[in-house]
Amino acid sequence: MTVIEAECGLALAAYGVRWRAWDDATVIYDPISGDTHRIDKPSGAMLRALSEQGAMETARLRARVDPSGDEAHFLAVAGLLLDLDVLEQA
């Protein structure tokens, strides 16, 4: 685990990432490439949670993310943002 998770909330705002979560899935607009992506429900829900909480302190985020637990989808979100070049690999 790195500090990627903590940066997600900041990055979403700082890079102008847009997203919309509906019951079935979430769509994300990447302002760097101009591409739009559709992600399925669990990852989308986690992204929405991140957006509502904003940037979190690293320690606090680390404390609540359990890669083997229910919030493992967070990793998928972080991976997606990495793929979008919104985040740099820490």
Partner: peptide, 26 residues
């Protein structure tokens, strides 16, 4: 149709979505 599917299909059929960028997404 699921809303996300409707959204993506509209993107596919848009002429200038990429030109409008975030404004088009919103």
């Amino acid at each position: 149709q699921a809303k996300a599917d409707v959204f993506m299909a509209l993107v596919d059929n848009a002429f200038n979505y990429s030109i409008l960028g975030a404004r088009g997404f919103d």
